[in-house]
Design a protein around this nucleic acid. Sequence first.
DNA 1: CATTCTAATGCAACTAAGTTGCAATAAACC
DNA 2: GGTTTATTGCAACTTAGTTGCATTAGAATG
Lengths: 123, 123
Amino acid sequence: MTFEEKITLNGFRLTAPRKKILSILTNQKQPISFEEYSAIDPLIDKSTFYRTMQSFEQAHIINGIESDEGKRYFELNETIHPHFICQHCHAITCLNPLPLISLEGYHVESIIFKGKCPLCSDS
Amino acid sequence: MTFEEKITLNGFRLTAPRKKILSILTNQKQPISFEEYSAIDPLIDKSTFYRTMQSFEQAHIINGIESDEGKRYFELNETIHPHFICQHCHAITCLNPLPLISLEGYHVESIIFKGKCPLCSDS
DNA sequence: CATTCTAATGCAACTAAGTTGCAATAAACC
DNA sequence: GGTTTATTGCAACTTAGTTGCATTAGAATG
């Protein structure tokens, strides 16, 4: 099922801003914040962006990640994988090869590791 | 080494508000937000609390956790353990028996699982 | 114990991420 | 094409967390 099908099947309309957001998210290798998104698409309206993120989360199209700096980052959930947030340089890294770890009784949807990334561990 | 020793050894002064914050944090079984803290200690000043959290983080006394609702939760780092945040009921659970999982090249300081907790998985 | 130095407090004002209300617009379905 | 209703875009708002600064009080020193 394509992302566009997921949008319409969940009762959401396929609008121009949503298509643009979807195509930009597709090009990202990392989760992206509103600040970063609006640098790519400067005409986007803040509330349209955030409301779209809410709709996309309901349609299980994206995952949200809370950074250690109080911002939200968004990523298409094509391949679900853990993330690492460096508390020193604040970079968010996708730990692509790693699978999600399951927990007895819980339904795990995402895992975030925090600490120091390899670059910051050296210095 | 006690927490009070960690404070002074890191060049911080052992003040009245810090002692009170430390004693209240000691009594918590879960990470606590400013909102929750100030319900216990209503006279605390917001900036004193947040600045104390910053100092305590520098002294490696506490760990901060970002909730899915854009708030920060704080916990004494006596025993470091992963946490689970339920995206349905928003409860934060300490996964005490679990150890931190290490990652090649990274220095892991905390792990957060997100998804649905056992209670919300049923419903 | 009194003095001095400077970190920390407490208050108010501020910042910025994210939300909400609402009139105007445009998908989707006939 | 016309109708219905979700969505947009704008401005105003909310709220967690930060900052500036004058005052207070740890802690070290004599």
